[in-house]
Design a protein around this nucleic acid. Structure first.
Length: 562
RNA sequence: GCGCCGUUAGCUCAGCUGGAUAGAGCGUUGGUCUACGGAACCAAAGGCCAGGAGUUCGAAUCUCUUACGGCGCGCCA
């Protein structure tokens, strides 16, 4: 039940509605003060009384009942203490009856949310710079589905541009089919790096690359075949990582997919009088909106990034009729998104307001920015492998008899990589270090998974527990834990609203901490009474359920034992 | 130069739409248990919330400004 609403409806403040009161109610910083509080300061103006007087008069009119046990006026705050037994009973009942659906909702009503994320570049190996978009997008994808939306995952492949001309040029110069077939993208990566090194002293190579790219566009059979081959190799390579991270896509329509869908967009812009010539290029002037112009066509008539993104947005609207279309892309591209969103708006697309750039911070190495061309990158697969390796070593040491060590190590290692990427606000920059990802202590997924394993172990020892009854007097640990579980559904909502999966990660750690305190201070299996034991088991089960649901939204599995 | 973002404990970060004494983890120091999994728990030390001004009953939170850092500003994506 909604306690804030319940309290608000039982208060009588003239000229202030129950909704307004409910919105003011907060949780006090110290549970000793109460479970809910109404700060009366804002009411002072409308009621024309001092906050202290308001709190006191509201308190005098308030009659306690079986739900709200006590109201108390303290320095302008009106503090309420709920009937904790009833509250905890409600929470447990809800979690246990809803099970894997606890926290879920049908509020989305099946509306479509397109999510553009991961968006790998052909012929480049997946590195840690791609981790944020992939893992953020995948989490948002799951969260949206959990809330009843229909998420459509789109991997907007970077499969178009002069760099593929460079690659063909490099392959023709030094490539070996067998070698590339065997080494896959790493071989392509090397060719690409080598090409750039050589091009520094042989600028004429740039022209050659441009010529090759033009051949791809003109569908020259040989170049196209090579290009398709490179694409296939890349997708095969990246599939391993997606498999590990449990990431899926509904569409792989990338940049080249839109190569024949841009002309109508340009035509529409022209018809609507938005296009303007400037320095030989075709632009949309955005000066009125304090932005630099958006370039639609280069002076040689070829298209640009913005043109393709507009074609893609229109295509997505026509194909999926989305309610929202999200772009999980680093903040580096803030301006680009602002610009083409604005151009679509100027074209009279009412849905332009439904396009959202979900921006996140940049990843760098301790020695500076990453660069595929220069070759200083950290490949994600290496990171994941090292994490799994370390997890395996620890599991083997702590639990040598475990049968499925590989499986457990995989869940733990991969979990650490994902959780590390989803623990802080997405906008923060990240300086990658192996020390950090390989640290399994403190506020980490490993701590949360360990907590689950503990809970599991207790539940398995208990066997089938009979019905439980919430005791009349609860320990602080029991109550705090139950309240943390109660926060899950609204945390999922706000994670969806703000596109911030880290809210869920944070709650996982909070719940785990509260469970461990409870576990340490309250005996479960050896509780002094049978009903108390059953209640604590129910609380343990509810904790495990909530953590499992929360972690699964992030893409992290929960091993039974570890 | 202009624009966007960031700045909170030694380090990495939370802090809900302005509310009561600013919180975690790591690190440091010292503890807890005959243990339902010690990958745990507790405690101590550590803060001019980058500086300044304002808004009001009240500001880490809102406004302005300065400093420092990151990113972006026409034919790359």
């Amino acid at each position: 039940m909604d306690y804030k609403k319940y309290i608000a409806e039982r208060l009588h403040a003239e000229g202030v509605s129950a909704e307004e009161l409910a919105a003011l109610i907060v949780c006090p910083p110290d549970p000793a003060m109460g479970d809910y509080a109404l700060p009366c300061f804002k009411l002072a103006k409308t009621l024309r009384k001092s906050p202290v007087a308001i709190a006191e008069s509201l308190c005098a009119d308030f009659t306690a009942d079986e739900v709200i046990g006590k109201a108390e006026a303290v320095n302008g705050y009106l503090n309420f203490t709920v009937n904790r037994t009833g509250m905890v009973g409600d929470i447990l009942k809800k979690v246990l009856s809803e099970g894997a659906r606890y926290g879920a909702s049908d509020m989305g009503g099946g509306r479509v949310v397109c999510i553009d994320y991961s968006s790998v570049n052909i012929a480049k190996r997946f590195h840690i710079g791609h981790l944020s978009t992939t893992v953020l997008g995948a989490a948002i994808y799951r969260i949206m589905n959990f809330l009843g939306y229909k998420a459509v995952g789109i991997n907007h492949l970077g499969d178009y541009g002069t760099q593929f001309g460079k690659l063909i040029s490099a392959y023709k110069l030094w490539g070996d089919r067998e070698e590339v077939e065997k080494q896959g993208v790493s071989a392509l990566n090397e060719l690409y790096v080598r090409w750039h090194k050589e091009a520094e002293t042989h600028p004429e190579m740039e022209d050659e690359a441009r010529a090759y790219f033009k051949k791809i566009e003109e569908k020259d059979p040989e170049c196209l075949a090579l290009f398709d081959w490179f694409k296939e190799l890349t997708l095969k390579d990246v599939a391993r990582i997606y498999e590990l991270l449990d990431v899926r896509f509904d569409s792989y329509a990338g940049e080249s997919f839109y190569s024949d869908k841009m002309a109508p967009v340009v035509e529409e812009l022209r018809e609507k009088g938005l296009l303007k010539e400037s320095q030989g290029a075709q632009i949309v002037d955005l000066e009125a909106y304090d932005m630099p112009p958006c370039i639609i066509l280069k002076k040689d008539g070829s298209s640009l990034y913005a043109t393709r993104d507009m074609a893609a947005a229109i295509y997505r609207k026509n194909t999926y009729d989305f309610y929202k279309c999200l772009y999980v892309v680093a903040y580096q591209q803030n301006l680009h998104f602002k610009q083409f969103f604005k151009v679509l708006e100027l074209m009279g697309k009412p849905w332009a307001k439904d396009l959202v750039h979900v921006a996140y911070g940049m990843v760098s190495l301790e020695e500076g920015a990453m660069s595929t061309r220069k070759g200083n990158v950290v490949f994600l697969e290496d990171v994941i492998d090292k994490c799994i390796e370390k997890a395996y070593a620890i599991v083997s040491e702590k639990n040598p008899d475990l049968e499925n060590k590989e499986e457990v190590a995989k869940k733990v290692g991969v979990g650490a990589v994902i959780f590390g990427a989803l623990y802080n606000s997405k906008i923060k920059d990240i300086v990658f270090s192996y020390d950090k990802v390989l640290n399994f202590e403190g506020e980490t997924s490993v701590y949360v998974q360990y907590t689950c394993a503990r809970a599991n172990s207790v539940l398995q020892k208990a066997g089938d527990a009979a019905g439980y009854a919430v005791p009349a007097s609860l320990t602080a640990e029991e109550f705090d834990l139950a309240r943390a579980l109660d926060a899950f559904p609204e945390t999922v909502l706000s994670a969806a609203e703000k596109y911030e999966p880290c809210l869920i990660s944070r709650l996982c750690v909070d719940i785990a901490q509260k469970f461990n305190k409870f576990y340490f201070n309250c005996k479960i299996l050896t509780a002094e009474r049978e009903e108390l034991k059953n209640f604590r088991l129910a609380l343990t089960k509810a904790t495990l359920q909530t953590l499992t649901n929360a972690l699964s939204l992030l893409g992290i599995g929960v091993p039974e034992k570890m």
